[in-house]
């Protein structure tokens, strides 16, 4: 049974339709990435899945007993709010200290429990948010542009962490990303969104789909191939692709 199933979903803000007739499903254990230009409704889709937006039409069906862990976009912690990492993680209620240590270790930041949230670097903060999502032992992780504001090395290492988490816990991942060259290689399935589902399939299929190329340009296909062969170190990507990544941010 699917962990989550989106059926014929339409979302409208005022007079603007941001999503029309979107359907998708996430199966246990798979990593699905949603790509799409700015304003293509990626975040609205995720917000509809967590129940933060009411759909105009269609529905979101969650498998029975399925637990979802949500990692928001980089969130701003006001300097005036003092809060330690461990207190932040305890906000969920009924969380033991051992759970917190375990989740922080899983997220790759075992030593941060006593740190102030507002003092963390971008990469540390995202890992703490990941730890928060992991505490409830989710079957599905939802990530909304979790690497926004991280440099390339930081985001590559964050996605590696996600892959590790998937291997260790077997949870499925549904994520949004701008960083095509990184996520395309790490995903089992890619959904290209632009108000509606343009195309979907394995990274290779999507990268060669005409709809995808129309949105992102042909250079990304090359970057994908490049990345597949060279996982562990950085390259200067073709200018074309770089432009697109930047333009998307």
């Amino acid at each position: 049974m699917s962990l989550v199933q989106v059926e014929d979903l339409s979302v409208r803000y005022g007079a603007r339709t941001v999503l029309s007739r979107v359907s998708l499903r996430v199966e246990p254990g798979e990593i699905v990435t949603i790509v799409g230009p700015n304003g293509s409704g990626k975040t609205s889709l995720l917000r509809a899945i967590i129940g933060a937006v009411k759909p105009l039409k269609g529905r979101v069906v969650q498998g029975s007993g399925v637990k979802i862990g949500y990692v928001p976009q980089k969130l701003h912690i006001d300097e005036t709010l003092p809060i330690t990492v461990s207190r932040f993680l305890k906000l969920l209620g009924g969380v033991a200290v051992a759970d917190i240590d375990h989740a922080l270790a899983q997220a790759g930041v075992p030593d941060l429990a006593a740190a102030q949230l507002s003092q963390l670097s971008g990469g540390q903060f995202q890992r703490v948010l990941l730890a928060r999502a992991l505490i409830g032992k989710p079957d599905l992780l939802l990530l909304d542009e979790a690497t926004q504001g991280l440099d390339q090395r930081g985001s590559a290492s964050f996605y590696q962490q996600i892959e590790t988490v998937r291997q260790n816990t077997g949870c499925a991942v549904l994520m949004i990303s701008h960083e095509l060259h990184v996520v395309m290689s790490a995903s089992d399935r890619v959904i290209c969104l632009n108000g509606h589902v343009c195309c979907e399939g394995t990274p290779a299929v999507v990268a060669s789909a005409p709809e995808y190329r129309a949105l992102f340009g042909p250079g990304t296909g090359g970057a994908l191939a490049l990345y597949r062969h060279e996982h562990d170190h950085h390259h200067d990507h073709g200018d074309h692709n770089h432009d697109h990544t930047e333009a998307a941010e």
Partner: peptide, 14 residues
Amino acid sequence: LTATLNEDLAYASG
């Protein structure tokens, strides 16, 4: 506190 930190985080926690 959760709602103050982030609205979507709050929605996701019910």
